[in-house]
């Protein structure tokens, strides 16, 4: 068992609870012992980085400090945006002694433990896409996804900027494909799998965002996908919940089921609704599950 500090972030704590529930259920089967961080806050997304960048750095330093205090060398995330924000802050602190010193002085003043820079921020996807996690995943996914065509959707901030993420080639990633295949499904290839879902501007610039959102859904549909899987709850929310707006705008009713990565593996591992919580999705996952049970 690998003991990791678990940072679930805002969405998995609230509107995407199904992501937290399925991740917690799956983790022991893929060799992960999750130590939940109770006292931490939002990472600020790109928003606090833009509105109050110094506060962004301190908020993330605080999360990293509490992760370090668990004694684990890994802070595991389940969201692309959290991953980029925390990794960016971490590299800034690890690579600049003077900056780390200033931030630590501030953390000390408000009673936060010192951050020594020993934590590595890793997304759940990376924990199960290679090494021991991958071997355990293959064993856990005994029920398989036979006959299902799954479209991987990476989202942006787990690939780019690659100097801060760096797990795989940002233009030709393959981790989700490897996992889909290890689960017994067929991975669909389509150009928009590395593009943006539009979520960061879905409230401020809805029309522009919908122009981005339609691409992966339409392309996955054309390629015959039974579902899309994503490692990011923000991508999940826009792909799942905003499909109704695409229908209103374009007249196209895609009815494309969207799965969190932990849910997809969970299905292959034979999990039930109690661990998967598909009832919390806006677009029904039933057609995909029906096809699997035939």
């Amino acid at each position: 068992m690998k003991r990791v500090a678990y940072y679930k972030g805002c969405l998995a704590s609230l509107s995407a609870k199904e992501l937290d529930i399925s991740t917690q259920a799956l983790s022991p089967k893929v060799g992960l012992e999750l130590v939940e961080l109770e006292t931490v806050t939002c990472c600020g997304a790109g928003d606090i980085h833009e509105a109050e960048p110094d506060y962004y750095l301190h908020l993330n330093a605080r999360i990293l400090a509490y992760a370090e205090a668990t004694g684990s060398d890994t802070l595991m995330t389940v969201c692309n945006v959290c991953t980029l924000n925390l990794r960016q802050a971490n590299f800034q602190l690890q690579g600049d002694e003077r900056l780390l010193e200033r931030v630590n002085e501030n953390l000390a003043k408000v009673g936060v433990p010192e951050y020594r820079g020993t934590v590595d921020v890793r997304h759940f996807l990376w924990m199960v896409a290679e090494g021991e996690g991958y071997d355990l995943l293959k064993a856990a996914a005994h029920k398989g996804l036979k006959g299902l065509k799954i479209a991987p959707f990476y989202g942006c901030q787990i690939l780019r900027p690659s100097k801060l993420l760096g797990f795989e080639d940002p233009d030709r990633p393959s981790s989700l494909e490897r996992i889909i295949e290890a689960c017994g499904g067929e991975a669909i290839d389509y150009p928009a799998k590395i593009k943006c879902c539009g979520f960061p501007i879905i409230q401020a610039r809805e029309e522009t965002a919908l122009g981005e959102l339609i691409q992966p859904i339409e392309q996955a549909k054309e390629a015959g996908a039974d579902a899309i899987v994503t490692p990011c709850p923000l991508c999940h929310l826009s792909l799942d919940a905003w499909q109704s707006k695409l229908k209103k705008q374009t007249g196209k009713d895609f009815q494309m089921p969207i799965l969190h990565l932990s849910q997809l593996i969970g299905v292959a591992a034979g999990f039930h609704e109690a661990e998967l919580r598909f009832k919390r999705h806006v677009v029904s996952v039933e057609p995909m599950l029906d096809k699997l049970s035939v």
Binding site: H49, E52, P53, D54, Y55, Y56, L57, Q88, A89, F91, Q92, L93, Q94, G95, D96, L99, P161, S162, K163, L164, L165, G166, F167, E168, D169, P170
Partner: peptide, 16 residues
């Protein structure tokens, strides 16, 4: 300035 302060460290990283 809040963003610039982190650039020194990040400039040492290379794109994968």
């Amino acid at each position: 300035l809040g963003i610039v302060q982190g650039e020194r460290a990040l400039s040492r990283l290379e794109h994968e």
